[in-house]
Write a protein that binds this DNA or RNA. Structure first.
Lengths: 255, 255
DNA sequence: CTAAACTGTGTCCCTTGGATACAGAGTACT
DNA sequence: AGTACTCTGTATCCAAGGGACACAGTTTAG
């Protein structure tokens, strides 16, 4: 059980995420470090999820009292934000000599990996947040990969949103550490079985699935997304005024 | 503040989501209904988020004691699951005479709308869940729309995962009820300003953005995804053995 | 009419996040 | 060197929340 503190001290959090380590202080030297606390929290959340993360447990794992943590962190919510920054980490350098597609492909898989290694990161990224330096660096990497493709700045950001969402979403659907092959189909199958008249298309789809085949939802979605981006870039290259999200009519049925 | 109960009684939850209303009982007739409880919870969560949802408040809004709720629902976690089923609701019928693309486009926007109307639904859909009838019906709708397009059953499910993710993800990024135009850019801009050498591409991208332009991330991503699916369907139509996610090589760079 | 089953309630307990006041430790300034 | 200031870790306290449990009342089956 864990309490989600609703309110987040945005000023303090900004300082924690973006501020400098601060110069020499006066009193006794701190026993802990922000980074150490974040690591401790990550270890606990990795093992038992966000619900298992309590100030008490974090303090114990650092051999300190619970209240000592509040000298470093305003509250639990801010701790989670710090943990997220640390867990996501810096984006990897793009593969050498790769074009935009290879870079975005690699980028998405790397982000997916980070999310999968820290399942609690899913829950920690709901709602509007103040992004940290690492998080922003990941966005920077996407935009950098798309520089010179003819996409507008807004579109480049839209791509980042799209890819983050896909990586995050699939880390959620993926069973932790390598799917047991066909688990998704099995889960759906149990529900559809006996209700075929209610879910006819789903039933047909499930029948056609090889239960031994690996879950390729990440690959599939990623390939589709990159194909779609490629189509837009190609259109832009041919005619800079063309294509997709540039026509911002209401509804925007595309095609 | 709200406590996320870690454990979910899966058996009881299955009964609640998929079970029949049950026949005539013996004792005094219940004062409440599962649906009524779920509605009450939804109203509270809509107003104050999941953190504002406490058994106490739900009970108060129904003029009952907190413990009375436990006669209907095993715990808070299961209540949230029921609320989700009710809030997502049944999928709308597909627009008449629409092809797969128009159907999926409409489907995604509708789901997006449901998510945006109930921001807490984001947090309620993290991690592996037991889907309810409504949730499964939404998946059914996607698969039905794709029947006959040449996609395999697994691919049809992959599309559903992809689109659910996009709708969900964008409801999160979208500020509640109509964005204040350029809020995302403003938020990023504050962080990038003064750190241009650290986020050069992002800085350039932000400079090129018209702050008055509406946030079109939903449209953009959806158009890209549907384009990508269209490319695959076209390839499949031309040559049933071709394309994308069917080649399941490691990495799967596609293209 | 009786017994069984079910409902809502009052009471109790545990866990959790957080406020506050205090004692000690280390540094800057005279 | 000494003193005053400041910062650290701690102990204590509190309120809120989820949930267990036993009890009294109500309704229906036999």
């Amino acid at each position: 059980m864990t309490v989600e503190t609703g309110g987040v001290d945005k000023r303090r959090l900004f300082e924690l995420l973006w501020g400098t380590p601060a110069g020499p202080r006066r009193g006794p030297r701190p026993t802990l470090t922000l980074a150490a606390i974040a690591r401790a929290g990550i270890a606990i959340a990795d093992a038992d999820g966000l619900e298992g993360l309590t100030m008490q447990r974090v303090a114990e794992s650092l051999d300190v009292t619970k209240m000592a943590l509040y000298r470093y962190v305003p509250g639990r919510a801010e701790l989670v934000a710090l943990m997220l920054e640390d867990a996501i980490g810096e984006p990897p350098p793009p593969p050498a000599g790769a074009d935009w597609r290879a870079r975005l492909d690699d980028w998405t898989r790397q982000l997916f990996d980070r999310f999968r290694r820290h399942p609690w990161a899913q829950a920690a990224t709901v709602g509007a947040r103040l992004p940290g330096p690492n998080e922003l660096a990941w966005v920077e990497a996407v935009v950098a990969a798309l520089t010179g493709t003819g996409l507008t700045g807004a579109e480049q950001l839209d791509v980042a949103v799209l890819l983050v969402g896909h990586a995050r979403n699939l880390a959620q659907h993926a069973t932790p550490q390598g799917a047991p092959a066909g688990s998704r189909e099995a889960a759906f199958g149990v529900l559809v079985r006996g209700r075929e008249e209610r879910f006819p298309a789903l039933d047909a789809a499930l029948r056609g699935i090889d239960p031994a085949a690996a879950d390729a939802a990440l690959d599939f979605g990623l390939a589709r997304i990159l194909d779609g981006i490629g189509t837009l870039i190609a259109a832009r290259t041919a005619d800079p005024r063309s294509g997709g999200a540039a026509d911002r009519g209401p509804g925007g049925r595309g095609e």
